[in-house]
Amino acid sequence: MHAVKLQPETSSPTKPHRLMIGIDDLSLVFETNDGPVHALSHINLDIHQGDFVSFIGPSGCGKTTLLRVIADLEQQTSGTIHVGGTSPQDARLNRLYGYVFQAPALFPWRTIASNCALPMEISAQPKSHRQAQIDKYLTMVGLQDFKHKFPWQLSGGMQQRASIARALCLEPELLLMDEPFGALDEITRDHLNMELLKIWKATGKTLVFVTHSIPEAVLLSTHIVVMSPRPGRIIKVIESPLPRDKTLALRDSEAFHALAAEIRQALASDHQID
């Protein structure tokens, strides 16, 4: 049950399917005072360009750790991983991905526009370009009117939207999101989910999304990676039968419920094994 390949290399002949992330027999062990913790155990996973992949599982299943390994914020103990054809470190140094944390992590001393400018300042992009990017993506997330406000003047949902705009401003091929809507109320979350889908469709980016909400995973993803704790591992990868063009109304459909049930069963089946 350990080794699960997402899909064969030629599953969908209709669109180009460059491999974006390739993970092969990857394990990560944290050494703690209470002995080794197997955060990730023998992970095999392929993620292709343009996919929207969700990691779902109970807390402690290693979904955030896996995302951090992709982002080069953690390093594996064994196994190999490629991101965009290079090592995660090179991918990070080349600013291949944008990372959205669970908290907005906006700098409180910068305005919203200035926060969005930060990654572009660091990568030394010209000011005119920075301004154009900020306008484009703040408009996309609906914050154009708030660009001169400071973070504390915005609600939690707006702050998180600003942090998504900030990640988009660098135009990364790959967007890594760690429970970005986890701290928000359900209504705001629904709204942002639909906006995220719109952005994903508009930009054609590859998205890796960590969540512990089954409906959110079903609503957003093309592929759902079900994970389990102790040791952190993948127990099932489900390719969504739902269309890529999704609406909130889809949540009342038969297919939606069937997929949600499949995820729930996968999570439960593992529980019985434990």
Partner: peptide
Amino acid sequence: ADKLHTELMITYNASAQQMFWKLRWFSAQ
């Protein structure tokens, strides 16, 4: 400096100087 802010700067491949002038200097104020 906030841990998340620091990690954010790491994902941007910020240099030590940028880390200082754009993050630590302000966190210290």
